[in-house]
Amino acid sequence: MKRPFNTFLLTAAIAVGSYALQSTNVQAQSTARVGIKGGFNASTLYYDSDGVNDKNERYGFHAGVFAQIPAGDFFAIQPELLYTTKGASGNYNILGINGTNTFRLNYAELPVLATFKLGNTVDLQLGPYVAYLLNSDINSNGDFGTGVARIDRDNFNKVDYGVAGGLNLYLGKALIGVRYGQGIQRIADSGVARTILGNAKNGVGMISIGYSFN
């Protein structure tokens, strides 16, 4: 699986973190925040399937709400409720028949993140998430034609969970954030999904913009 987007996330995190460490004269934010956020996803699935090659990210989005609850001058807890897209795409060549399959998994996700505040501008975050699978399908485009086939949710574990980490940069009430989440739960549970995906787990990188109302 190619991972250029995840390399970009790491570069962005280092750059913003360096900026934060130089801002030693900024006082820590100690008031609660409530806001909205959304942005771009690049998700991956690590799966093995005969004839599948050149596996790539699925590009999608996330959107939702967040709250930040202070627990001291330099620490807070941030729960969120997000709609988020996950999955991956892969090219196949089976008996000379070529095409691309995109596995699309869409979740309602609840991260609960420990937030370490570097002044009033930068937050470093790490914590668990749990997600509930809302729907799933495969989008196919190739020699067989183009179409979307539903995969019964019963073939998947409806609950996904894992860990997420990243940082936010606040510009007044506006924010820009980067995050990576790695699933721990195996996605496929039974049926065709288990045959294709095996022990695959979710991985997703996010770039967010948002607004804090207070």
Rank of each mutant, 00 (worst) to 15 (best):
L82K: 06
G177E: 02
F74G: 12
N141P: 02
N25R: 10
A42Q: 14
N214I: 00
S208H: 09
H62S: 10
L45A: 07
L95V: 05
G162S: 05
G198D: 01
Q68P: 00
G147E: 05
R58Q: 04
A28W: 09
S136P: 07
N56A: 15
T7K: 14
K2E: 07
K158Y: 03
G39R: 02
G35F: 14
G35M: 14
K55R: 15
Q68C: 00
T11G: 13
G172K: 05
D143P: 03
D123K: 09
L124E: 04
M206G: 07
N6R: 12
T7W: 12
A114T: 08
F40W: 03
L110C: 06
K117Y: 02
Y83L: 09
G60S: 03
K201E: 15
S208V: 11
H62A: 12
I138K: 07
V192I: 12
T146K: 11
K55N: 06
A188E: 05
Q22I: 06
G142R: 04
E57Y: 11
T100D: 01
R150C: 01
S43D: 01
Q185M: 10
Q125E: 15
V178H: 04
L171K: 04
R150V: 14
K55W: 03
P4D: 12
N139H: 13
Y46V: 12
D123S: 08
F40T: 00
N120L: 02
G64W: 07
